[in-house]
Design a protein around this nucleic acid. Sequence first.
DNA 1: TCGAATTTGTGCGTATGTATC
DNA 2: GGATACATACGCACAAATTCG
Lengths: 249, 249
Amino acid sequence: MPTNPPAYLKIAADLRAAVTSGDLAVGAKLPSETGLMRQYGVSRTVAKWAISVLKGEGIVEGRAGSGVYVRDTRRLVRHAQGRDRRAGDGLTSPFAHDAARAGQQGTWEHDSHHDQADDRIAARLGIAPAAPVMRTAYRFFADDEPTQLSTSYEPLVITQGTPVEWPEAGAAVGVVARMDAIGVRVTEVVERVSLRAATADEVEALHLPARASVHTIERTYFAGDVPVEAADIVLPGGRYDLVYRIPID
Amino acid sequence: MPTNPPAYLKIAADLRAAVTSGDLAVGAKLPSETGLMRQYGVSRTVAKWAISVLKGEGIVEGRAGSGVYVRDTRRLVRHAQGRDRRAGDGLTSPFAHDAARAGQQGTWEHDSHHDQADDRIAARLGIAPAAPVMRTAYRFFADDEPTQLSTSYEPLVITQGTPVEWPEAGAAVGVVARMDAIGVRVTEVVERVSLRAATADEVEALHLPARASVHTIERTYFAGDVPVEAADIVLPGGRYDLVYRIPID
DNA sequence: TCGAATTTGTGCGTATGTATC
DNA sequence: GGATACATACGCACAAATTCG
């Protein structure tokens, strides 16, 4: 006798409501599968499907042998760079700034090397395919938890031989300050925000549960009409809010 | 004999790769459950779980009695309003503009009425709780497919008795143009982008598959430091790219 | 230290309903 | 009507991790 809506979605909705209402706080343990079976008079399969829905939504997390727990959904806020930037800002990176606002310590690791632009990056940077670029892969941590991945590309035609050729080697931090140091005035940043399922690599690097969603941001810095840096940024879905301030006129 | 990774994730990865590589184009039919059972030598349960993973990611869609099909993942692009706006822009809404860029026809339905601000909206608008607001619920369509939900709130203290009190009744379209018409100069818009699972209402209104993710945008327009409009916008995840252009300095 | 109980993770087989072709 | 295929649901089994006496 199939009911409408199906049992597993009704159970999922009940549990979701308990989480969002606060009845089940962060870290709280959900009823066990056996408990749900008795409580709702369903089979183990149905209890599993209900919980798997919530896991797909990223709001709970199963630990084998222990139980299913409400995940920490506190969000970091990422502020896109804009006119807020003050002089002296260049001493600390945008990421460290965002982490500090949330009361967390922002750190990162990086790996820079010369590379050739693939077709996609070449198109974004307005350079020839296979043109030389500086490629830097970042992994950012907030209180030692990995929370952001980023790969940036800068045309070497702009930076080669300058003090800021190696992004993390000089005194200036951040694209705007570094470009400023070599006389390139960054005037605009364009970000394209998208959403997709996390790849296996991202699940690994960001300590995500399987089936997680991520925000992806294609960020491009411009000096006038000339792109000077392109970056692919990956943020765990549901752990981040992205804030944009846009002046009108 | 549990292997690592589990069979259902391996099958899901194979199918995902076939979709992203283009071997399975948009609209193509995936192998049936029976097919997967034979192909991989697994039970129906495992085939089901593999497909359910892809459904959770929103890249395929099951049709009972027919099969599982690759969903259309072409993306609409939403351009946040900024300095791009030209004079005369006020004749067409930002949504219609975005749809036109994608070669689709943008239409919408709306429902306006007087209401009282709840605590959350009051905080965002900087007004007293229960203060009177104009509340307008929108549903936007691209080529007759629902693609965006939005609920906007304007403090009646600003608009009451003016020609633009009812958002969809006057000649001017869009918040900036309407506010301009009553001498309120909108100077900035702030958008907070987030990601969460779709509610049942949203699944219904946007024709989403169960377990879908959505972007949510909390948008606030400011005239100087004064908020003049707040809106909650819901976009289907994976069907939209959000583009922001931010001037530097 | 050990072992038993609990719980999730993965997997198999089957049955019924219903939509599509 | 019949064949196919998905959606939902039941029951069962075993492995692995955790918890706790």
